[in-house]
């Protein structure tokens, strides 16, 4: 059988470049972005599964225009094409509005047998989008997948839990979110990324996906005031021979 795989890829700011944008949302227009590390696993596994089943692998990303870079990376790593869900109307999307936009794009390009996502993103980190996409697509989900196989229409996976793991089986179509240990991350050189033809990345606008509401207007959550979460520790740092430092440190604590 062939396997139609959709992979969700998020462009995240490099940690040292995190900055506030208007309305206290993350500023995603800055250039230093990269593929979320868990999404790199989703791309690598999606490409591998599609190749083994003579299937197809389509990468989706919601973000500003420069999120096309993470789609180019996915295509350079073996995905067939990329769908960039990008429009000023999507600005200010919370996880629910993001999930609705991604779902609309997936339904427009689909159907798919398997949707792969990262277990969470390292910038906001809640892991809500995979579960919300699964819910809106009406799919069962296995989360934090650290090992998986597909046989016919059945996916079997080992999933990380808080205190161990479980092994479970779902019938396709299904959504699986990928943990770091699932496989080596998809990585390509900047040259490989740049050599991906423009024609393999399709931009989808809000108008293409329907009336919405999208973005901030379709987001039930609002980010308000920020407060600093600094340290209130004593911050005594010692030097010299270790034995002396140990004694000095013990006096403090």
């Amino acid at each position: 059988m062939t396997l139609r795989v959709a992979v969700l890829v998020k462009s995240v700011p490099r940690a040292e470049d995190l900055a506030l944008g208007p309305g206290n949302r993350l500023d995603r227009s800055r250039p230093a972005a990269e593929t979320n590390p868990y999404c790199r696993r989703a791309v690598a596994k999606g490409v591998e599964l599609a190749r083994d089943a003579s299937g197809t692998c389509v990468a989706f990303s919601l973000g500003p225009p420069n999120a096309s870079d993470v789609l180019r990376e996915a295509v350079a790593a073996g995905a067939d094409r990329g769908i960039l869900v990008s429009d000023a109307a999507f600005a200010g999307s919370d996880t629910l509005a993001s999930s609705r936009a991604l779902v609309a794009a997936i339904e427009r390009e689909g159907p798919f047998d398997l949707v792969l996502a990262g277990r969470s993103s390292i910038d906001s980190g809640t892991g809500q989008v995979p579960a919300q996409v699964a819910e809106l697509l009406g799919l069962p989900m296995l989360s934090s997948v650290r090992a998986m196989t597909i046989a016919g229409r059945l996916a079997r996976a080992e999933c990380e839990t808080d205190d161990g793991f479980h092994e479970s089986e779902v019938r396709l179509p299904a959504l699986l979110s990928c943990a770091e240990r699932l496989c080596a991350p998809a990585k390509v050189t900047p040259d490989q990324r740049e050599s991906v033809p423009d024609g393999l990345i399709t931009r989808v606008s809000a108008a293409d996906l329907g009336p919405g509401p999208w973005g901030a207007a379709g987001s039930p959550t609002r980010v308000g005031a920020l407060r600093e979460a600094g340290s209130d520790r004593l911050c005594r740092v010692f030097a010299g021979p270790v034995a002396e430092q140990v004694q000095e440190a013990l006096v403090v604590v």
Binding site: T95, L96, G125, T126, Q128, V129, Q132, E135, P220, T221
Partner: peptide, 18 residues
């Protein structure tokens, strides 16, 4: 996280994670 995210998506409720 999965229960809350699914419930929020199903109902259209605002959900703050973590």
């Amino acid at each position: 996280r999965e229960v809350a995210a699914r419930l929020a998506a199903h109902r259209g409720e605002g959900l703050v994670g973590d």
